[in-house]
Nucleic acid binder design. Structure first.
Lengths: 105, 105
DNA sequence: TGTTTGTATAACCAATCGGTTATGCATTAA
DNA sequence: TTAATGCATAACCGATTGGTTATACAAACA
């Protein structure tokens, strides 16, 4: 009953992708993260919550501060999904071209 | 003013990811695609519209049929984004562990 | 011709999203 | 002890999402 949020959905938002970029090799507090975006602290907190729900960010509370760091193992799932289609990337879509030709006769 | 839909958002939906899987190496009509999912034809059409908007699916109209095929070059953008973080995947998050230890003293 | 088929579109719906402001609460500083 | 700080939560908001049913329309079939 974990109901963990989906990684694909988590990275669908550009703000959250930017947060991942920020925290990939730096540990920042919530406020320090917020300093990089032009939105309110609660908005930042919500994005960070989504990122922690799917494990892409880990937070450690120290006193009143929360120190955040990306934990990008979860991106492996995305890469695995996209990589299975790499063999199709440069495909010429001949079947579709045949259909186009069939359309012209 | 293209307002092309974002690939990250397009693949955020599991139904659309399944459609990509279906059409990666097969050309199917809209109705044939619909046959693989337990939802109405308009719902399928809308998903397919989103996939074509961002170029992940190409459609050729032949008579009253629309033949669809995945065009997965667009997934390269996703792989490029995830791959830049591969070096962090097996990182031990030492900085965070240090913080944890600092918390315990 | 009239009917069926393949698909799109409109109108609608509840749920979710991404933001806001206001407020509460625990921790630190004065 | 009191004030300030770091963050979360609640309540709200408009826009978007993902689905529905009803309908329209062009193409194919009878």
């Amino acid at each position: 009953m974990v109901a963990r949020r989906d990684v694909f959905q988590a990275i669908a938002d550009p703000t959250r992708r930017a947060m991942i970029g920020l925290l990939a090799n730096k540990t920042l507090t919530i406020n320090e993260v917020a300093g990089n975006f032009g939105m309110s602290q609660p908005a930042i907190s919500k994005h960070m919550h989504i990122l922690t729900e799917c494990g892409l960010v880990v937070m450690v509370k120290i006193g009143r501060e929360k120190h955040c760091r990306a934990n990008l193992k979860g991106l492996e799932e995305v890469t695995r999904w996209t990589e299975q289609y790499r063999i199709f990337w440069n495909q010429r879509l001949d079947a579709l071209e045949d259909l186009l030709n069939a359309d012209n006769d």
